[in-house]
Amino acid sequence: MTQSNIMPGFRPALAYTLFYLGLVVLIPLSTLVFKSLQLGWGEYVDIITNNRVVSSFRVSFGTSLIAALVAGLFGFVIAWVLVRYPFPGKRFLDALIDLPFALPTAVAGVILATIFQPSGMLGKWLMTSFGVQVAYKPLGIVVALIFIGIPFVVRTIEPVLQEFDTTMEEAASSLGATRLQVFTQVIFPNIFPALLTGVSLAFARGVGEYGSVIFIAGNLPYVSEIVPLLIITKLEQYQYAGATAIALTMLLVSFLLLLIVNLLQLWARRRSGQI
């Protein structure tokens, strides 16, 4: 590096960074690729197109999508309320939003399973009043993933809402817009990219989530078995090739979806004139 920089320690800092990154992240992750390359194409396709594997992908991505959308809706309302309205206990509730980040997923899992099981406090009420069973059904997975996803949405929207220029609202209202028009045509388009980011973060996290889901899911193959659980099942049966192929596919699909979301976001930002 030739530059007029008097700051010391570039070589050791960068060398250590690369060494440690390589040792604990890149080399371990590369095993996934190399192990998969040992599989023939036909073998790989056989594993991936197996009915049970396809079903688990459908369950994982389907429940994550629904949960991310629900978290998006409630997360938006919560962020809006926390930023815009004064009410008692607000600071406490705001701090509590991060609970799903801080609470170990296994703890969240056993709690949600206990609440929503057919004899649990909410599970019983939902069962007798509406005939809906949450735990041990795909619906249980959705509930767990909403819990996990909420902070992603709230924490992405909150700063954008805080910085939102209220003079835009004033301008719109002085031009005669109604409150609904101000919201749908001024506020929402400006918040939308952040909402999209939050929802996609919640979705990505949901697809990989394991701890909070397995206790409430019921884990029935073809019905409520998520991809991470299937990977573990394969490992326990010493089917390393199968576990690897499924894991690599899940990783690639997740990256692809994140890429699409990033492009969508770029488009939404352009459209609302933020770039």
Binding site: L21, V25, L26, I27, P28, L29, T31, L32, K35, T105, A204, V207, G208, E209, Y210, G211, V227, P228, L229, I231, I232, L235, Y238, Y240, A243, T244, A247, M250, L251, S254, F255, L258
Partner: peptide, 26 residues
């Protein structure tokens, strides 16, 4: 690359170490 581990499912994070150090691993 530093952020990469955040986008990897916890189960896969465990799997890669089994692939490296497990009985059939590297």
């Amino acid at each position: 690359l530093i952020d990469l581990p955040f986008s990897v499912s916890p189960v896969i994070s465990g799997l890669i170490f089994v692939l490296m150090f497990g009985a059939q691993g590297w």
